[in-house]
Design a protein around this nucleic acid. Structure first.
Lengths: 216, 216
DNA sequence: AATATGAATGAATACTCATTCATTTTGTGG
DNA sequence: CCACAAAATGAATGAGTATTCATTCATATT
């Protein structure tokens, strides 16, 4: 019937097919969850909200994800995979030198597809529950370790290549990683006062200062 | 009755008086709220939890704060005031030079009374709702501006004092502020892998690199 | 065209939780 | 010691919400 078709087509669904494959629906529902959390917060997002955002019916989440807890876990997992994909792709595409790769990663963290207030709101919503929801902590910790190792290796390569004494790769890794997290927070809290180029200056000022031979 | 007295004395209450002044109860309830949020998360903390943590009755929060929303707003306000007090006190106590003051502030951010996993969990819980709860954003933004101004002034004084060209005070301010926020997140997510001294090394590596004359 | 499959619905259920308020307890000024 | 006001209680209320499930519907298969 015309009304039902219109209603379905209006929201989210790519095809006008009323039924989609399991995987398509799961992706659609995760996307709706991200939107809802960024809009209403993780505490006030109900399964009804998610279903409505997706243009589907009340019981749909439990049908595809069994529980709200599950939906949220998989949403975090999705965000983490999404970030990892961009990280890996950046690492691969960037020029051969470690210094180039490191700079490319830092720039990636501030480009719109990563440093997007909607996504950041969801990341911080999950981080805000890390201490009380062990699953969230495990997921975040596992991925973080990977980035730490990768960045650390790049820093070590730069240190070995250059003539840098008295600075440890881990120290630089810690400083850089925490700087991007903190810049994201400042964007979340003060979107008006945030400027990507100014933020990048902060990162760049550090890189130039510790690795002058490589970033002049 | 003995049982009631024991129960009351066991939790939080400083005096054995069964009734406290309005202000005492409010402080007690805010303290209980912080404990609950750090334990259960902001989304799962109920007024019943808070009352129980305080060793008081179900309706107590509405009696003293009128609503849950109000309690949470005042809890964030309390955390912000608590941080501000430490910030101001640090600024006052630290040696006269701007470089000393700046270093003292950075050290403060990593000392146990500030960089405490329970408090950080609550801070991040509120930050996680900043985008969806305008009140939280306003409170955070207002305080942040103050710290930014103070740190910026210190950086400018150091730049003027030393022979530093081509670095802006705001850039250093952004880098330092975001670094501490990010280090807090790494402590929250990976408490095992966190070490205050290592974290301080990251901050110090930046200070030495940009202001070599002042931090050698 | 008839049938089978599983996706989707949405009303009903069971439960949680913020808020209210009638009642009890406690402190204080007369 | 009494009476009154303030503080505190905790059972009751009702709004909201995750989950269930009997039923409907779209599509693929025969």
């Amino acid at each position: 019937m015309a009304v039902a078709a219109l209603k379905t087509a209006a929201k989210g669904a790519k095809s006008s097919r009323r039924t989609a494959t399991r995987e398509e629906r799961r992706q659609q529902l995760i996307a709706a969850t991200i939107k809802c959390i960024s809009k209403k917060g993780i505490g006030s997002t109900t399964l009804g909200d998610v279903a409505q955002e997706a243009g589907l019916s009340q019981g749909i989440v439990n049908l595809h994800f069994a529980s709200k807890e599950n939906l949220f876990n998989e949403t975090l997992q999705f965000l983490a995979e999404d970030y990892k994909a961009q990280f890996d792709s950046t690492l691969e595409k960037a020029g051969p030198e470690a210094a180039e790769k490191l700079l490319a990663l830092m720039e990636m963290d501030l480009k719109p597809s990563v440093c997007d207030r909607q996504k950041l709101a969801v990341w911080f919503a999950f981080w805000g529950e890390v201490k009380s929801v062990p699953t969230y902590q495990k997921i975040c910790e596992a991925y973080d370790r990977g980035y730490d190792d990768a960045i650390n290796a790049l820093c070590q390569a730069i240190i070995d290549d250059g003539n840098y004494k008295s600075i440890s790769a881990q120290t630089v890794t810690d400083a850089l990683s925490s700087m991007t997290d903190g810049l994201w927070l400042s964007y979340l809290v003060s979107p008006k006062g945030f400027d990507r180029d100014v933020a990048m200056d902060a990162v760049y000022s550090y890189l130039r200062a510790v690795f002058p031979e490589h970033y002049e």
